[in-house]
């Protein structure tokens, strides 16, 4: 085995790719947990400073700021405050709230993006007239200014959740438009000639050839957009006034300096993101899998 890629081939044959990916993920997770706990042990032994100096270790290894990994998980099943509801319930509600905003924007943005993509492929005139605006719209880094957009929306009497949904829609429509255009143009020239030889109508060409061919492209965009719209929703929730949602939980627990609750909230944010992309991927497998999965 002089070559690394040969090792990869050797290890791949034992399990199915899916199992290997899950095992790899869990493996890295275990490594992260071990490093985390080792760092705490060693850090405490060193008295929380870099040896031979007065410099404090960052992150500090004490339990208050860097709790044990298991304490974070256990925190989920403890009440948020005395006699309060379980942390996992509170965070679950917050995650649902954030996901709902993200989802509304995601669906609207996805439909607009698909519609624009179809229009652009059908009419070069439409593409020439509007594509520059679509591209120009992306010169505004909306994630970076999401809180401002929400404040601004408040001034215009737009409800906060709607502003956040608009941000999510904005983040979704562009990749979906671009990838819809690419996907609709992806069939081979001979496939288009074939449809022409059948004297197929434009809508038959669209629905029987171009859209099925575009699905993998569209889903690639949707998966990127799903993550982006969750990020957009969290960042958009930052301005004061939001009572629900993940951003509130993150900010509150951070200000309380309660690392266990904060890390639990981060964990829930991660789960929310993975869940959203997971749902999109599930639909992708339903719609695209049979055709495009080759094992």
């Amino acid at each position: 085995m002089t070559d690394a890629s040969a090792d990869v081939v050797a290890t791949t044959s034992r399990w199915s790719p899916r199992v290997r990916r899950i095992m790899g993920f869990l493996g890295v997770l275990v490594v992260v947990v071990v490093i985390w706990e080792l760092y705490k042990v060693v850090g405490k032994a060193l008295g929380g400073v870099v040896p031979g100096t007065e410099l404090r270790l960052r992150p500090p290894p004490d339990d208050r700021i860097m709790p044990h990994t298991w304490d974070v998980v256990l925190q989920l099943f403890r009440p948020v405050r005395r006699n309060g509801e379980l942390t996992v319930l509170l965070l679950g509600k917050a995650a649902l709230f954030t996901l709902r905003e993200a989802f509304v924007g995601f669906v609207v943005g996805g439909l607009v993006g698909f519609g624009l993509g179809v229009a652009f492929v059908r009419s070069t005139l439409a593409e020439r007239a509007f594509m520059p605006y679509v591209v120009a719209s992306q010169t505004v880094p909306i994630i970076a200014i999401a809180p401002m957009v929400v404040v601004w929306g408040g001034k215009l009497d737009i409800p906060q959740w709607l502003s956040v949904a608009i941000i999510a829609a904005y983040l979704t429509f562009f990749p979906v438009t671009i990838n819809t255009v690419r996907g609709l143009r992806s069939p081979a020239p001979t496939a288009m000639e074939m449809m022409r030889s059948y004297a197929a109508s434009p809508s038959q060409v669209l629905w029987k050839l171009q859209v099925p061919a575009a699905l993998p492209y569209i889903f690639t965009a949707l998966k990127v957009s799903a993550t982006a719209s969750v990020i957009g929703a969290i960042v958009g929730e930052l301005p004061a006034g939001f009572r629900d949602g993940l951003a509130r939980a993150l900010l509150e627990f951070s200000q309380q300096f309660n690392a266990e609750k904060l890390l639990a909230a981060i964990l829930m944010s991660a789960i929310a993101g993975i869940l959203f992309v997971g749902i999109v991927t599930w639909f992708e497998h339903r719609l695209v899998a049979a055709a495009h999965r080759q094992e």
């Binding site: 899950i22 993920f25 890295v28 998966k223 993550t227 690392a259 890390l263 991660a270 789960i271």
Partner: peptide, 23 residues
């Protein structure tokens, strides 16, 4: 091991790490 982890990491809102980084 790292590739699936990286793919999963990319689906989560990394920005949620900001408050713990502050602490």
């Amino acid at each position: 091991g790292l590739l699936p982890f990286a793919i999963a990491a990319n689906t989560m809102p990394i920005i949620a790490l900001a408050p713990i980084a502050n602490n």
